[in-house]
């Protein structure tokens, strides 16, 4: 059922690399926004899980990044762009269990090589672009039923 939204509702969050304390705030605020709009629970969960994984990737790997979201009556689009090291081999990075995270990140419960697969799993459309030395951009679309 399409939502009763005129045009597009959008917003932006700035993400700071290395800041584990506030990591996840953007995703929880997005969750709140989607709840207010009356989006289906299952859709909210998929969208926020995908967003949270993307947010954590910026926190873990990049210096900084931005998260933009666009909500229409039919879907939500989430775009994350970071100023990070970039991904050398995207195909490899998409494999479950593959990770370049350092040990200390693994000891914090992240870097298990499930982030990108998890984003893809929860999105209807998943796009990733990366330039080594410049950064990575991820775009995810989740359609409303």
């Amino acid at each position: 059922m399409p939502l009763n939204i005129d045009g597009t509702i959008d917003g932006t969050f700035q993400l700071i690399g290395g800041n584990f304390t506030t990591a996840g705030e953007a995703s929880t605020q997005l969750k709140l926004k989607l709840s207010e709009l009356g989006v289906d629970e299952t859709i909210i969960r998929r969208a926020t899980i995908a967003t949270f994984e993307a947010e954590m990737n910026v926190i873990i790997y990049a210096a900084a990044g931005w998260l933009h979201y666009y909500i229409t009556s039919r879907s939500i689009t989430i775009k994350i762009a970071d100023m990070g090291p970039g991904i050398e081999n995207i195909e490899l990075a998409m494999q479950e269990g593959y990770s370049t995270a350092p040990d200390w990140v693994r000891e914090m419960g992240w870097g298990a090589g499930m982030g990108l697969p998890n984003m893809k799993k929860n999105s209807d459309l998943f796009k990733i672009d990366s330039v080594v030395g410049e950064g990575t951009t991820v775009e995810m679309v989740i359609n409303f039923p």
Binding site: A23, G24, E25, S27, R45, I49, G109
Partner: peptide, 17 residues
């Protein structure tokens, strides 16, 4: 059931339901 206690465990819980 987890051995980690830092704040993002709570955020993970919230998002995962």
């Amino acid at each position: 059931i987890t051995g980690l206690t830092q704040i993002n465990v709570i955020r993970t819980a919230e998002i995962a339901g």
